[in-house]
Write a protein that binds this DNA or RNA. Structure first.
Lengths: 113, 113
DNA sequence: TCCGACAGTACCCGATAGGAACCAGCGTGC
DNA sequence: GCACGCTGGTTCCTATCGGGTACTGTCGGA
């Protein structure tokens, strides 16, 4: 059971003050699981992600990528080429998160609707 | 069966029209993973869930439970007792979803912050 | 000169999350 | 009778988020 102290001495997603709650919120948000999955096979560009994640608007995709980058789950690399090329790639941490997220997507595809 | 074939003949979370996208959105929302995890060990009452999920407001908990019930991931049973007792319990489908969600929570607890 | 590709940003709007307060039914104490 | 507490919520209001459309800026090509 959750030992509810006012701080978080061990990681417990059920504890309100635990930083891992933030991580769960991020991973468990609408597009994150799809973005991370789309990057499993290697780096992808903004436009490629946009096509792969059917229905995502550029704004939301941009926000999602920024949050994932802030959390160090992905890296963003801009190449000063013409036309501009920007690549997003999973970090080691992101690749770790991709594993349980893939299980979740697989379960959903097997059991939804 | 996924052979309804209007727009989504196979389950693919990356397809915009696929009903499994809705399921992913539901599971990958802020409180769902925690609610389902809290019900893994058996039925729980509203107040128990409220304590277990530190920081959840009754409104949001109520909404989350309703959506999970609509999707048949949990059942709600009200007993005409004094005081009123309401129990939430995982369905078979919900218990299935609990497995990948537990992996996700475990990963988060092992890797966050 | 205009067009399109690329990687976003700006603006506006509706939906959702969040907090605080409030409600209803029932039993108990006064 | 009346307040009180327990339980399981609902309602109000606001802040944030997600979402759609339009637009920017740079460049190469027709």
């Amino acid at each position: 059971m959750a030992t509810t102290t006012d701080s978080c001495d061990r990681n417990d997603v059920y504890a309100a003050m635990c930083p891992c709650r933030d991580m769960l919120d991020l991973l468990a948000s609408k597009w994150s699981a799809l973005v991370i999955g789309a990057l499993e096979d290697g780096p992808r560009r903004f436009g490629q992600l946009r096509l792969r994640l059917e229905g995502v608007s550029p704004k939301v995709l941009s926000q999602t990528l920024k949050r994932l980058e802030d959390r160090e789950l992905i890296t963003r690399t801009a190449y000063a080429e013409v036309p501009l090329r920007v690549e997003y790639e999973l970090t080691e941490l992101g690749a770790g998160a991709a594993v349980p997220l893939k299980h979740l997507r697989d379960w959903v595809e097997s059991n939804a609707a």
